[in-house]
């Protein structure tokens, strides 16, 4: 089992008001799955992603990542897992503006203490952007920037890629390209969990989890309605 959440609660205090972002979430994800988490804003799906990405810790409940209990992880151990086992893709790309595409992809390698330009180039190639390696993010289109971010998420060959609204800032054509890329990567064995509120985006996934008010209200498999790769 790759990911296992058991009765996970997350409670914040914002301006003195208690916010229950997660209210007893149970979720199991196997290696190789392609899961879309859906729900209206404020439903707790982003908080759930932060917990899954070890950026945030549950208030109560248990999170097992690759069979390992994460509640006792030190800050350094969590950083190490984020570095090696988890890849992040964000809505706003979050590339370093002054670094080239290649340098952005190399960033996780730097923190892993690996100097391997070929590996970063290979990751760029796998998203079809090898020819853009020397470009700055500002010289790339939105879809290209997001593909660079995906290459960065993949370069360490993580156990799971977590994508938070990856198409939120893209037009429909670029969105389709990015989602096809996720689909292809998933077929090649990468586990993908993505958060979205768009049904067309979720349609690319093989399983759809519905959040509402901090709880999972539906969890169903999603048969491939769109023939894979047909939009290309």
């Amino acid at each position: 089992m790759l990911i296992e959440l058991r009765d996970v609660w997350k409670v914040y205090r914002m301006d003195g008001v208690e916010v229950q972002a997660l209210r007893g979430v149970d979720l199991r994800v196997e290696a190789g799955e392609f899961v879309a988490i859906m729900g209206p804003s404020g439903s707790g799906k982003s908080t759930c992603m932060n917990v899954l990405g070890l950026l945030d810790r549950p208030t109560s409940g248990e999170y097992r990542f690759e069979g390992r209990d994460t509640t006792a992880l030190s800050e350094v151990e969590a950083a190490r897992l984020r570095n090696r086992r988890i890849g992040f893709v964000f809505q706003s790309f979050n590339l370093l503006p002054r670094a080239t595409a290649l340098e952005n992809v190399e960033l996780p390698l730097v923190y892993a203490g690996v100097r391997d330009r070929q590996r970063a180039l290979a990751a760029l190639r796998s998203v079809g952007l090898e020819h853009r390696a020397r470009h700055l993010p500002s010289q790339l289109s939105g879809g290209e920037q997001q593909r660079v971010a995906i290459a960065r998420a993949l370069v360490m060959q993580p156990a799971v890629v977590l994508a938070d609204e990856p198409t939120g800032n893209l037009d429909s054509r670029a969105s389709a390209e990015v989602m096809q890329l996720f689909q292809r990567l998933n077929r090649e064995g990468v586990t993908v969990i993505l958060v979205t509120h768009e049904a067309e985006v979720a349609a690319f996934a093989r399983r759809i989890v519905q959040f509402r008010d901090g709880r999972i209200v539906a969890d169903r498999p999603n048969p491939p309605r769109v023939p894979e790769g047909s939009l290309r």
Partner: peptide, 16 residues
């Protein structure tokens, strides 16, 4: 700030 967030997300520790 954002750069620091990115670096932490991809595996930078506090010490880094």
């Amino acid at each position: 700030t954002r750069e620091i967030g990115i670096r932490k997300a991809v595996g930078a520790t506090r010490r880094d």
